[in-house]
Design a protein around this nucleic acid. Structure first.
Lengths: 224, 224
DNA sequence: CCTATCGGATACGTTCCTGTATCGGATACG
DNA sequence: CGTATCCGATACAGGAACGTATCCGATAGG
C-alpha cells in the first residue's frame, strides 16, 4: 500500500478559519494532528482517547504522531497552547470591535447582557471548547505542573478581561458595587455555569443565558 | 494461597464516620469497593482508572468486582449515588443546625459568609469530592443518560438549598435583588469556582473565600 | 454437626494499545 | 536531473487490562 494519499485535509472541518494554513510539511501534519486531537479529546476525553484514534482521524498512522510528539500529554499541551492563543486573540479583536477607541454613544443598560455574551462567546464550537477546557481543569487539579500553567493562563485571561469590563461599565454609566476583579469572576462563573447547564439540559437557547447575565450585571452595579 | 485474609478494612480512611458498617458480607465488600473507587477515581480519574487498581486498593481481586458490578461505569454510578446521598443528608442536618425551628436571634450581616460556607461545606474530604464531582459533570456532558441524572440530582440539590437560603436571608433582614433561584446559583458558582481555584493555587486558606462569599451576598441583597 | 448456597479467588484467552526499529517515497537543493 | 535528507508508513514485540469460566472456602439453615 502506498503511503496513503495525503488526504486533502478534511476541508477544514467548519473550524479555524482564523489560522492561516502553515507551509512546511511538518507543520501541516502537526496542525492536522491537533485538529484531530481536538475532536477526539472532546468526544471521548483525553484519558480515554488512544493515540491510534487521533492518528486515524487525522488520516495518519502512529508513525506520524511519534515523529511529532513524544506522548499524548504533549499533544494535549500543544492543543491547549494553540486554542488558548486563538481564544485570547479573538478576545482582543472583540474588545476592539465592541469598544472602539473613540468615545461612542453610551451603552444602554439593557444591552449589557449582549455585551457580556459578545465578549465571552469566543470559540466557534462552544461545545468542544467547553469539554476540553473542563478536562484541562481536571488535569490541572491532578498535576501540579499543569496546574501552574492553568493558573498562568487564567490570570492572563482575567488581566485582559477585567479592565475591559470596567470600561464597558463606565461607558454604560454604571459602577460595580464589588471589587471589579471579583465581579468579573462572578460574571464569568455564571456564564460558564449557564453554558454547561444549557448543554446538559439540551437547551440550545442562549436567550435565557443572556437574560440571566444581564440581571446579574444589573444587580452587581449601580448608576455611577 | 488462601483467599486473601479479609484485610481488616483500612481503618475507615478518615472518612465516612457517617455510614454505619453494613452487616451482610456482600454489602461489606460492595462498600469497600466503593471506598477504593472513591480514592482511585479522585487520584487518576475514572477513565484512567483500571478495575484492577480499584480492586487491589480494596484488597480484593477482580473476581469480587465482577461479582458485584457489571462495569466500571456501574461502579461509578453507585459511588455517585452513595456520596450524593451523604451530601444531601449532611446538608439537611446542617440546615437544622444552622436554622433551628424556633426563631433564634437574627443573623448578623457580617456572618453571612460563614453561613454560606457552613451550608456548602459538605463532604469531609473536599478535594476528593471536588475532583469526582467535576469528573461526573464531564461524563454527564458526554453521555445523555448520565446527563439526565446529573440534571435530576442537581435540581434536587437546588430545591433543598433555595428555600433555605431565602429563610436565612430573611432572618438576616435582607432581600435578594435578583430572582432567588439565580442568586443561589451565583453564590454556589462563586463557591465552587473559588474552591477549585484555591486548590489550583495551593492556597488552603478558606478566609479569602469566606470574605468573597460575604461580599457577593452583600452585593446581591438589600436591607429588607 | 452437616450440607447447600453464596461469594470471592484463580486461571485462562482475547483484545487493544503502546513504543521502537526499519523502510521507502517525498521534498529540497545543487 | 540527481542526490541527500526528511518524514511518515510498516512491521514487530511487549504489556496491560478485560471478561469469563471454574474452583473452593465461608457462611447460613436445618
Amino acid at each position: 500500500m502506498p503511503p496513503a494519499p495525503p488526504v486533502p485535509a478534511p476541508a477544514a472541518p467548519a473550524g479555524t478559519p482564523r489560522r492561516p494554513a502553515p507551509s512546511s510539511r511538518r507543520e501541516r501534519t502537526r496542525e492536522r494532528l491537533l485538529d484531530a486531537a481536538y475532536e477526539v479529546f472532546a468526544e471521548t476525553g483525553v484519558a480515554a482517547a488512544s493515540v491510534e484514534e487521533v492518528c486515524e482521524r487525522a488520516g495518519f498512522t502512529r508513525g506520524a504522531f511519534y515523529s511529532n510528539f513524544a506522548t499524548k500529554e504533549e499533544l494535549f499541551s500543544a492543543l491547549l497552547e494553540r486554542e488558548n492563543g486563538d481564544v485570547l486573540a479573538a478576545l482582543g479583536e472583540r474588545i476592539d470591535a465592541l469598544l472602539p477607541e473613540g468615545d461612542a454613544p453610551p451603552l444602554d443598560e439593557s444591552r449589557l447582557g449582549d455585551l457580556v455574551l459578545g465578549l465571552l462567546e469566543g470559540p466557534s464550537d462552544l461545545r468542544r471548547w467547553c469539554l476540553v477546557e473542563n478536562e484541562w481543569q481536571l488535569v490541572a487539579l491532578r498535576d501540579p505542573e499543569v496546574g501552574r500553567r492553568w493558573v498562568a493562563d487564567h490570570d492572563r485571561f482575567m488581566d485582559a478581561l477585567v479592565p475591559l469590563v470596567r470600561r464597558a461599565a463606565e461607558r454604560a454609566g454604571r459602577r460595580f458595587v464589588l471589587d471589579p476583579d471579583l465581579a468579573v469572576r462572578v460574571v464569568v462563573g455564571v456564564y460558564r455555569e449557564g453554558l454547561t447547564e444549557a448543554m446538559l439540559r439540551g437547551a440550545e437557547d442562549p436567550a435565557r443565558l443572556r437574560a440571566e447575565l444581564a440581571e446579574v450585571v444589573r444587580a452587581l452595579t449601580v448608576a455611577a
